[in-house]
Design a protein around this nucleic acid. Structure first.
Lengths: 291, 291
DNA sequence: AATGATTATTCCAACAATGGCGCAATCTTT
DNA sequence: AAAGATTGCGCCATTGTTGGAATAATCATT
């Protein structure tokens, strides 16, 4: 069963009618080539080439074998080329698991452009807060807001989002507008679950302050909604609150200060990615770099 | 270009949907199998299998590759099997170089039977006294009366012919019939070229005697003809003079004595013989053993 | 829940394939 | 005719591959 490579070599030799030329086109020493063909002949038990020191010609069996093998090797080559094209020309279904907020806020607006770029691709988005198991479930890609703990997954940073502070004008009117991070302690600070403090940066300066509020949630949309409803101060990337800023529902506070950037990761099971996945990640990274 | 074997391995794995089972049917350790598939994937740059430690399934690319490769590997297998059948079922043209005397005396009578045995075979006999170059000329086989000096040829003994002494009754009447080998010195002994003496055997006894005559030749037929024409005593295998014995043209002399057997060789360029050649040699050896 | 069974992968020593090199046999050109 | 070029093949140190054991990760069963 281990004769297929040698078959390809034989086809090349038969085509060139010379060991030397065949070895040259194959990029291997003719000593190896000669030996491999000899072994092939031994394994099938008869001669394929009639050898003179100067010239080689096909035996009857060799002629027959060549006719068949030629086609087979050619087909194999084409199969591989098509596989190569799959890497180059993305197609098929891209299955992505990603957070709801990322999907609605970041992905949705840029998706039409990407879809137009690759007409051969279909998409299957799984919007879920849970950490899907990439190995068990057939996802090509997951987008996460934190690096995965399991080390056997490959995580690429596709964006760094810098949260800034926003509040509703109504809220500020009621509670007053803070002019230094230290004043945040007296405010309702709408945070994600498990967040106890904010570290605010201004140039080289940084101030940590414990924050909290009556509301916690694992949804950016929820926090934004609460902020609009005058429930407190939110720390969100600019793009998330773009509409609310434009309409005046939210207003940036402490404009010189910002939180440490949080990374967005594209997580895959392996580095050997089909083109569709590669292009999608590239596209995201390119568009999100601007943030 | 060296991916064909791995392709076959992948087909087996995809078929079995398991490394372990595939390794078993392939008769190789699954460690090797796993590594080879990994290398294949790396070489084409994308994953073919979606792995769980417990189960494997095909990726999109793997599915596509499997569909194509399956057929290719199957065709390759068939090509090899057909080649194997060529070894088993003789067909094609058998090209033999052989001495004229051997052809007419020994081969011709048994050829119809052999030809009937293998209807798929055609024959091309080159009757020549010269030592044809098996390497340069496209002969499958040469039959020689002496072992070849060149060591890179394969010589098989197919017969041992025991020459005995025959003479024409007319010759014996003229010159008298010898009753001991020592008397042969006074006779015309028709020998092949380059033969200066005969060693005659009777049971454990052996006698060497220098022989010679006015005639020498490299043709058995010539010597037989000369013997019939009362020109001397000939040393020939029995089968050669069978007709002359039956018709009384020749008569055996010194019937208890015989010369050392001379071997007949089937000489080939290689041991890797197609069925046609193998069968022909077998057939000859079987029929000539009786001598 | 936890243990045992099954499966893919990784590690490392033994092994085999590789590829320069030289040789012998040809063919070609001066 | 003769020397040079070309070609296939055998030899042997080096490199790369192999395969058994250990490992990690899952599934099934108690």
């Amino acid at each position: 069963m281990e004769y297929l490579n040698d078959m390809a070599l034989f086809v090349e030799v038969a085509k060139a009618r010379s060991f030397r030329r065949a070895a040259e086109t194959l990029g291997m020493p003719n000593s190896t080539l000669s030996r491999r063909i000899s072994l092939l002949e031994k394994s099938i038990g008869l001669r394929l080439l009639h050898r003179t020191t100067r010239r080689i010609e096909l035996t009857e069996a060799g002629q027959l074998y060549y006719e068949r093998s030629k086609r087979i090797v050619e087909e194999a080559r084409i199969a591989h080329e098509q596989l190569g094209e799959m890497v180059a020309q993305p197609s098929g279904v891209l299955r992505v698991s990603l957070p709801v907020d990322f999907a609605t806020t970041y992905l949705a607006p840029m998706l039409p452009e990407f879809a137009a770029l690759y007409p051969g691709m279909d998409f299957d988005f799984d919007l879920t807060p849970r950490n899907v198991d990439l190995v068990a479930e057939p996802f090509d890609l997951a987008i996460r807001m934190a690096a995965p703990q399991t080390s056997n997954l490959i995580a690429r940073v596709i964006a760094r989002l810098t949260p800034r502070l926003y509040a509703a004008p109504g809220y500020l009117q009621q509670k007053g507008e803070p002019h230094h991070p230290s004043e945040l302690k007296q405010h309702q600070c709408l945070t994600m679950q498990n967040i106890g403090s904010w570290i605010l940066h201004r140039e080289a300066e940084s101030v940590e302050t414990t924050v909290g509020s009556r509301f916690r949630g694992n949804s950016v949309a929820m926090i934004r909604r609460l902020a609009v409803l005058e429930m407190g101060i939110s720390a969100l990337p600019e793009r998330v609150v773009m509409e609310e800023l434009a309409s005046g529902q939210l207003r940036r506070i402490l404009p010189e200060w910002q939180l440490a950037p949080t990374s967005v990761y594209a997580v895959t099971e392996t580095r050997l990615l089909p083109a569709k996945t590669q292009r999608f990640i590239e596209f995201l990274r390119e568009r999100l770099r601007e943030e």
